Amino acid sequence: MPPSRRGDERTSRPTLLEIVVPAHNEERRLPGGLLQLCAKLARLPFPTAVIVVDNASTDRTAEIVRSWPQESVPVRLAECTTPGKGAAVRAGLLETTAPFVGFCDADMATDLRAVERAFGLLLSGERIVIGSRAHPLAEVENRHSPIRELGAFGFRALARVLVPGVSDTQCGFKFFDGLLAREIAARLQTDGFAFDVELLARCVAGGVSVLEIPVTWHDMPGSRFSPARHSLGILLELWRIWARLRAESRGALKVKQPLDSVGYP
């Protein structure tokens, strides 16, 4: 079948998988990242789409997305004026309509071969599949400084308190049952770096298991994270997540107690 006809058939069927890409001032890395992602998705035998969320960029990020060729993989722009990766991912997930959704970083640091495995696991019944750099079979190229590594170690220790059993909450490669993703996204309140922790903690609190898969991950230049500038803010985010979930849990128990007391199941 000619490639053009194959593309027409893909776009005429309902989209099965949508991937969200948060982007803040990514004019340099986004074109290469989108090329990789669209090339990968175009080889899948079902319709897919990409949503790039422009997170208050001041460069040409939005213009790049608006002018992107709409071929076998549609790419559309969503806008989020609230600063923070968490706010951008939340906005993107709420824009989705597909039965399966995911998000990945604009630099495509995670090897996209993992997309097929994640999607296959979702089809088999898993509701959350996330990439893990801490998995024994993961391949990780890491050029971080010792100070940043120490900070990452401390963050992981704190994150495990909120999300028991998950070894890597921060890998920017997560896939979900679409209904679950939209339900959880609507409740997210963390706008910054630690939003993944709240997202996964809410899933686990709701009784949904999180499956980690090994990934091949390359340390990409251009990261904006700085231990000196961001560590205190991240600690505050983690504390707020803990306090918020604790308060919600107590509130749920208070609502439940009167029902139990009069014999409701």
Results as ranks from 00 to 15, higher is better:
232 L>A: 13
240 R>C: 12
210 V>F: 08
154 G>V: 05
108 M>E: 01
136 P>L: 13
139 E>V: 13
6 R>N: 00
46 F>R: 06
105 D>K: 05
204 V>H: 13
253 L>F: 03
8 D>F: 10
241 I>S: 05
193 F>N: 02
60 R>F: 01
131 G>S: 13
119 F>P: 02
162 L>W: 08
97 T>V: 10
114 A>N: 05
179 L>T: 15
221 P>M: 03
14 P>L: 01
163 V>T: 15
104 C>A: 07
225 F>G: 04
189 Q>I: 00
199 L>G: 09
202 R>V: 11
126 E>W: 09
10 R>K: 13
180 L>Q: 12
93 L>F: 15
8 D>K: 09
104 C>P: 00
232 L>G: 06
195 F>A: 08
194 A>G: 11
248 E>G: 07
201 A>Q: 10
143 R>H: 15
92 G>S: 08
154 G>W: 07
178 G>C: 10
216 T>A: 15
226 S>L: 01
180 L>S: 12
224 R>E: 10
43 R>W: 00
69 P>H: 12
253 L>N: 00
105 D>A: 06
127 R>I: 05
127 R>V: 05
111 D>S: 14
177 D>V: 12
104 C>W: 01
86 G>T: 09
221 P>K: 02
52 V>G: 09
185 A>T: 09
25 N>Y: 04
202 R>K: 14
192 G>R: 05
200 L>W: 13
217 W>V: 02
86 G>I: 06
196 D>M: 08
47 P>E: 14
205 A>F: 09
185 A>G: 11
78 A>H: 03
8 D>C: 06
33 G>T: 10
207 G>N: 10
23 A>C: 11
222 G>E: 03
83 P>C: 02
35 L>N: 03
29 R>C: 13
149 E>I: 13
249 S>M: 00
217 W>Q: 05
245 L>P: 12
88 A>G: 08
183 E>A: 14
243 A>G: 00
129 V>E: 06
32 G>S: 11
260 D>V: 09
6 R>Y: 04
184 I>Q: 08
180 L>N: 11
27 E>K: 12
136 P>K: 13
206 G>N: 09
251 G>W: 00
4 S>A: 10
222 G>R: 03
31 P>S: 14
185 A>Y: 09
42 A>E: 15
146 P>N: 07
98 A>W: 06
68 W>M: 07
159 A>Y: 14
1 M>Y: 11
217 W>A: 04
68 W>R: 06
189 Q>W: 00
79 E>Y: 04
87 A>R: 09
89 V>R: 01
103 F>M: 11
121 L>H: 04
189 Q>N: 02
260 D>R: 11
10 R>P: 01
259 L>Q: 12
168 D>F: 02
145 S>M: 08
60 R>W: 00
262 V>R: 13
174 K>Q: 15
6 R>S: 04
125 G>N: 12
137 L>Q: 14
87 A>Y: 04
192 G>D: 02
199 L>P: 03
77 L>P: 07
33 G>F: 08
28 R>G: 05
26 E>T: 09
110 T>P: 03
30 L>T: 03
122 L>H: 06
208 V>K: 11
146 P>W: 09
258 P>A: 01
37 L>S: 11
35 L>S: 07
47 P>R: 13
113 R>D: 12
66 R>K: 14
